[in-house]
Structure formats: C-alpha cells, structure tokens
Nucleic acid binder design. Structure first.
Lengths: 197, 197
DNA sequence: ATCCCCATACATACTGGTTGGTATGGTATT
DNA sequence: AATACCATACCAACCAGTATGTATGGGGAT
C-alpha cells in the first residue's frame, strides 16, 4: 500500500519551483533536490516534465483555487455582493509577502504556457472558466434578489472582475509591493459597490 | 560609418523570440537564426543575453508603449475622459491576432522576470510608472475641467485602470480569443463612464 | 596616390556546464 | 516470485559564453 508520499513531495517541490522560476525554467534537478528524491522516483510517477506540470495544475493549483476563491462564492451565506467582496478581501489578505512577489500561480502558468502548449492552455482555461462561472452565478443571484443592478451582463461583468483581480496581482507582483495590491484591490471593491442596485 | 543595421535586426529578432517564448526560454541560437547573423555579431553589440533583454525593453518595448499608449494621452485634443476611452479603444484595435495570443510584451516580461532579476524589474516598473502617471494626469485634468468625478483618487483609479487593462490582455491571451478582449474591454469602458461627473 | 595601421564588425569553432530523458539495477512489499 | 518503488549512472542535445580568425574601411604618414 502506498501513501504516495514521494509523489506528493514531488508535486509540492515542482509547484514551488515553478512558482518561482516558471515552468520552462524550472529545473528537474532543482525539483528533485527540494523533494529529496532522485530521477528514478520522478519518472516512476510521471512520464515527462510536462506531465509533472500538468499534475501541478490539476492536483495542486486547482484545489487551492476551489477552496479559497470559488467555493466561498458557492457556499457562502452572505448576500451576493457582500459575498463577492468578502471573498476577494479574504483571499487577498491570506496572501503572504512571498506569494505577492511571486504572483498568482494560475496566471503565471497561463501567461507563460498558453501560447506554446495546448495542454497547459486547456487546463488554465478550464480553471478560469470555472472561476468565471462562480462569479457570474453570484452576480445573477444578486440580480434575482434585487440588490445587484439589472442592467449589467453577468458574464461580461464577471469577466471584467476577474481581469481586474488578475491585473491587481500582476501590478503588485511587478511593484513587489503589498501596498500596490491593497490600493488596487480598493479599486475592485469600489467597482463592486457600483454594481449595487 | 555604421547604421547599426545588424544591431537593430538582433533587437527585433530578440523581441520576437522573447515575445513568443519568454526571456529565459528564448534561445540565443534561435535569435541568431532569425536575425541572420552569428554569435560574433551578438556579442559584439551586447555583453550578455541579459543585456540584450534589457535593450529590448529600453529600445523596442518602451518606444511602442510611448507612442501608442502614453503620448496619445499627453498630446490628445479630446476631453480627458474621451481621450482615455479612445486611446484604449485604438490601442486594442491595433492589436493583431498574433499579438493577442502572445499578450502584452511588457506584462509578459514583468511577470516572468520581476521576481528573479532586479534589472528587469526596475525597467518594467519604470515603464508602468510612466504609464500610470499619464493616466493619472489625464484623470486630474478631467477633475479640474469638471467632467470627471471629484470623489475619486486619481492615482488609485489610474492603478485600477491599468490593472484592468493588463488583466483583459491576460484573459484574452489565455482564451486565445479576440472576443474575450472585446468583452473585457467593454467592461473597462463602462467603468470609465462611471467616472464621469 | 599609396602604403601601412588598426579599430570596427562580424564569422567560425569550441568550451564547460546543464538540460530532460533513459537504461539498469537493487530492494522492499505483497 | 512478482511487482512497485526508487537510486545510480549515463546519454545526446542544447545552453550561454569565449577564443580566435578575418574581412573591411578609414586615417595618417610618406
């Protein structure tokens, strides 16, 4: 019976290294060092570097996205608009300084890999679609409840909110500054307020 | 007398390759092939791959940013809010399909390199600051003219606009879709309209 | 005008190191 | 005994960078 401990440590090490260096620049030897195993272990569990990268997306980044950004929108008890605002606030505040400097891992991979590898692109796109749908549904719910303006298109608005969020992360990453993230996040929250109706 | 034709072709080839693959994954040999020269030429004009990357930012990306995104804000004759909207519209429409798929070259480099190389980070940050200031000044001008709301902070708002713009580019890049860019851009323009006052 | 001098502007060939990937072998578990 | 699990050793390909060679053209001396 296997607990796949080695596999999990490989995934974690790969995630860390990819988050720091990007996928292409992430060295397998560096990952192996960090995980404390050797090439034999790696190629026992994964057929190639690319499949390791796919697994990081499927088994590491996706769960994080679900639990801290999507599920609070689905399962939350607050009114829709407040639920959106609190999810964004909490998600941002939960970020450590290092995570701000390194940026959103999903966005990083999407930006780096989507033009050059279809497998990565499909995965990142699927995650964005799920995220988008959770925001869009929350907006729709607010519209039926009557406390979100009726004249906005939920999908377009959700797309814009998502873009603004990722943009804030990008700005903060480049400025290497939590303050930039806070200022930019304030803009997002102000925009959300403008959706009340 | 030298027209630095070789140097310019190296810069252009490096820009293209970096735009497609990213800086780290851009192969010098691929750049040399594309430019039609050899290593001797490259290392005659640039001391290292990194300095070539810096030069691409300084001499290729910066001019593009200035002429199509910043100077229209400074020299434009439209009223401030319309000037912002038209600059954004025109800048977006000028993008070819390939450029949408490959994303904003400034954002690409910023995302990839800012956590791991201070030289890149300083350059991309300086460009973002210049961009930010041009937007911020346009907002201020609108406030003094009275057709932009007085209760918004120009710098914070400019930061949010910039984040939203870069976010739209990111979303469109990952979706590989001009339609996504258009929908998302609509959100930006709507937001800008909400600043009128 | 012509010779030399030498810097500029590249091309060619090569280096040590790293890359992702493989082949093989051993060991523990079932 | 067979399979899962993983370490070691090795590979060709590629990497950025360097050492060296060479063609060219302009400037000064004659």
């Amino acid at each position: 019976m296997s607990l796949d401990k080695t596999r999990r440590e490989l995934l974690q090490a790969a995630y860390t290294e990819m988050h720091l260096q990007g996928f292409q620049a992430a060295s397998l030897n560096a990952i192996l060092n960090k995980a404390g195993v050797t090439k034999g272990a790696l190629y026992h569990y994964f057929r190639s570097k690319k499949e390791l990268g796919y697994a990081v997306l499927d088994e590491w980044i996706q769960p994080y996205l679900m639990t801290t950004w999507i599920e609070p929108l689905i399962n939350g008890t607050l009114p829709p608009l407040e639920r959106l605002k609190s999810t964004i606030s909490q998600g941002s505040e939960a970020l450590g300084d290092k995570e701000i400097q390194l940026g959103c891992p999903l966005n990083n991979l999407a930006q780096e890999m989507s033009p050059i590898d279809e497998g990565f692109r499909q995965r990142t796109d699927a995650l964005y679609q799920a995220w988008l749908e959770s925001i869009s549904n929350t907006l729709k719910e607010g519209q039926t409840l009557g406390n979100i303006r009726q004249d906005i298109d939920p999908r377009d608005t959700a797309l814009f909110i998502l873009a603004a969020l990722e943009g804030c992360m990008s700005i903060a990453k480049n400025a290497q500054s939590r303050e930039a993230l806070v200022h930019c996040g304030k803009g997002v929250l102000n925009y959300l307020d403008s959706l009340a109706g």
